[in-house]
Amino acid sequence: MVFSRYENGTDVIERWDRVFEAVAAEPRRQLIVSLLDREPDQSVRLPESAVNPNVPIAPERLERELKHCHLPLLADGGYIEWESDPFVASRGSRFEEVAVVFETLHSFAADVPDQLVLGCQRLERERQFG
């Protein structure tokens, strides 16, 4: 019993570490939120769906970063699936593990400190319209 709890605890810690690594970069956060806004079986276009509208980045640079860093990390975790032609992403088998972070955050937008809300269109909208 103790060993089983230890094994399960270790697994949970590793999963949370992977989730927080997955959401540690803005393009990955934007992509996850874009996928949340779609039906589960729909894909989103890239690189557009990974851009923060308040802080645009050159599309060529973002596409390179997505293909070589962000998308492989998310795909390796099972959070997304992606294709390069057409350049799109869709939910992976473990998408809910990262989605819950944003669903929870959005549902408590009124409690999030202002410095983490102002400038984030999604949280500002959640706060305004609840």
Rank of each mutant, 00 (worst) to 15 (best):
V2R: 09
R5N: 13
Y6L: 06
Y6C: 02
E7C: 08
N8S: 12
G9K: 07
D11C: 06
V12C: 09
I13V: 15
E14F: 15
D17E: 13
D17H: 13
R18H: 14
F20E: 03
F20D: 03
E21T: 11
A22G: 05
A22D: 12
A25W: 10
A25L: 05
A25T: 12
A25G: 06
E26F: 10
R28N: 08
Q30N: 06
Q30E: 14
L31H: 00
L31I: 01
I32D: 01
L35Q: 00
L36N: 00
D37S: 10
R38E: 00
E39P: 03
Q42P: 06
Q42C: 02
S43W: 00
S43V: 09
V44R: 01
R45Q: 12
R45T: 15
L46M: 08
P47G: 02
E48D: 14
S49K: 01
S49I: 04
V51E: 12
P53C: 05
P53Q: 02
P53N: 07
N54A: 11
P56D: 07
P56N: 02
P56K: 03
I57D: 09
P59N: 07
P59F: 13
E60W: 09
E60K: 05
R61I: 11
L62N: 10
E63G: 08
R64C: 04
R64N: 09
E65D: 11
H68R: 06
P72Y: 00
P72D: 02
D76L: 03
D76I: 05
Y79T: 05
W82Q: 01
W82R: 00
S84Q: 11
D85I: 04
D85N: 08
F87T: 03
F87E: 02
V88W: 02
V88R: 03
A89R: 00
S90N: 09
S90H: 10
R91A: 05
R91F: 15
G92L: 03
S93R: 06
F95S: 03
E97D: 12
V98I: 14
V100I: 14
V100M: 10
V101M: 07
V101W: 13
F102L: 01
F102W: 10
E103Y: 06
T104Y: 15
H106W: 12
S107F: 09
F108V: 08
F108Y: 12
A109Y: 15
A109L: 06
A109R: 07
A110K: 07
D111P: 02
P113L: 00
D114H: 09
Q115D: 15
L116G: 08
L118I: 14
G119H: 12
R122V: 15
R122P: 04
R122G: 07
L123R: 03
L123N: 11
L123S: 07
E124P: 09
R125D: 14
E126W: 14
E126Y: 15
Q128F: 13
Q128K: 10
F129Y: 15
